[in-house]
Design a protein around this nucleic acid. Structure first.
Lengths: 138, 138
DNA sequence: TCTTGAAGCTCTAGTGACTAGAGCAATTAC
DNA sequence: GTAATTGCTCTAGTCACTAGAGCTTCAAGA
């Protein structure tokens, strides 16, 4: 039996975040000590590690809820879990593509600036005038 | 003189977002019509286009506030503006690097799954067991 | 056994950058 | 003139936490 602080140390999930997950129904409300403090077992530890890992991978809390639901039915086909993971992969790839466009644009803006004052600063001018952009972004 | 709807159409910034920017002090409160509706001129149009462009590039509202402040002092050296842009570039690059690690991990997870049921689904198992990860992420 | 300090509890409110909705007033087009 | 559209303010919701107040419980040393 561990306290919420122990659980936090073992999983790397902060104490208030554990309580938040309980409130959101991602982890079940655990037993309490006589003094009303939360007491966790191995099962909760594993579930919280699962949640932590999925969050690190960028899954939304709602996705995690689905994945947990699924993992409680090991006899069912796993295509739903696969789809959630693939959708996450697609969304990560889209974010990367978008950020790369921004990177290119920012590189151009920051490197072109050879003005000395704000009046002829390329950074400011580029932001003022979208026509200075090489390609469409955003 | 345009209405808030005209301004929205010309800049691509949604009407409630324009009002939000006014509340946040990013754009000045404009004149009003007799019937208390906002009436904008060319100056506000340009400022809003500036904000839109900077937001598209991922600048935080606070950064934009600084950039606007700077652009009001064209005689000052522009190193501050350059620094804001460079910091934004660094942060974009960090986000890209992080997302690429996630992409690799998700690819591995999603492609390895050849199980038929949740019970032996690699997606679920990989999320349960961090030790299955190729490298550290998150 | 006493004490002290860390850790726990609940509750409310704040973050960032909007977005949605209610309930009303003004404007515009026909 | 009237109907549709657009505008107004205000409050509350989004997501995934995070911070703080004010209190109670627990664990370790004297």
């Amino acid at each position: 039996m561990f306290s919420i602080g122990d659980l936090s140390r073992r999983t790397g999930v902060k104490v208030p975040t554990i309580r938040y997950y309980e409130q959101m129904g991602l982890v079940a409300a655990p037993e309490r000590s006589e003094g009303n403090q939360r007491r966790y077992g191995r099962q909760e530890l594993e579930r919280l590690a699962f949640i932590r890992h999925a969050r690190d991978l960028g899954f939304a809390v709602e996705d995690i809820r689905s994945l947990i639901e699924l993992s409680g039915h090991p006899e069912q086909p796993c295509c739903h879990a696969d789809r959630i993971a693939e959708e996450q992969l697609i969304s990560v790839r889209e974010k990367i593509a978008q950020l790369k466009r921004l990177e290119a644009e920012l590189e151009r803006i920051a490197s072109c600036c050879d003005g000395k004052t704000v009046g002829d600063c390329y950074v400011i001018r580029a932001l003022s005038d979208h026509a200075l952009c090489a390609d469409e972004h955003g």
